[in-house]
């Protein structure tokens, strides 16, 4: 058999997987596309092993390893996806943009959200404010 058939098939399969990784929105589907790419590699390994026929059978042995690693990868990947889904409420990759570079005015509201807690902490810690409020209360109480 011509080596070109499995090689071309592997190349096309790899590119289909590549497209899936880049284009899919759901992260589980992205993982599936990764599997496709890994399988393309496996196909290559097997085909070249058959062609070269070395005594170590390196191609087939490495294929086995790859399959194993792929299994571990999909397990861990799905665990991560699940955790992200649990914390972020979505598994869509293009909504997970925590690393985006936001302009300063967009970053401010997040600070403002954190501010009230901080302010209240400060107010509690500040003895002057506490005494002021205390004295105000003291004045207000008799009235």
């Amino acid at each position: 058999m011509h080596l070109a058939y499995p090689a071309v098939l592997a190349a096309l399969l790899f590119c289909v997987g590549l497209y899936g990784v880049l284009a899919r929105r759901n992260s589980v589907l992205v993982l599936m596309s990764v599997e496709l790419m890994l399988n393309a590699v496996n196909l290559n390994l097997v085909a070249f092993d058959v062609w070269l026929r070395d005594t170590l059978h390196a191609g087939q042995a490495l294929t086995l390893f790859t399959i194993t690693i792929a299994a571990a990868e999909i397990g861990l990947g799905l665990a991560i996806v699940l955790m992200v889904f649990r914390t972020q409420g979505t598994a869509d990759i293009d909504r997970l943009r925590e690393l985006a570079d936001r302009p300063a005015d967009q970053a401010l509201p997040a600070d403002a959200d954190a501010d009230p807690d901080l302010a209240s902490d400060l107010a509690a810690a500040d003895p002057d404010t506490a005494s002021l409020t205390g004295s105000a209360r003291g004045k207000a109480d008799p009235a």
């Binding site: 990784v21 284009a23 990759i93 293009d94 997970l96 925590e98 985006a100 570079d101």
Partner: peptide, 17 residues
């Protein structure tokens, strides 16, 4: 460059590939 930094991992990966 800042506009490119949109936080979408797929965009980064596309550029890389």
């Amino acid at each position: 460059v800042r506009r490119a930094q949109n936080g979408n991992a797929q965009t980064y990966l596309s550029a890389l590939l």
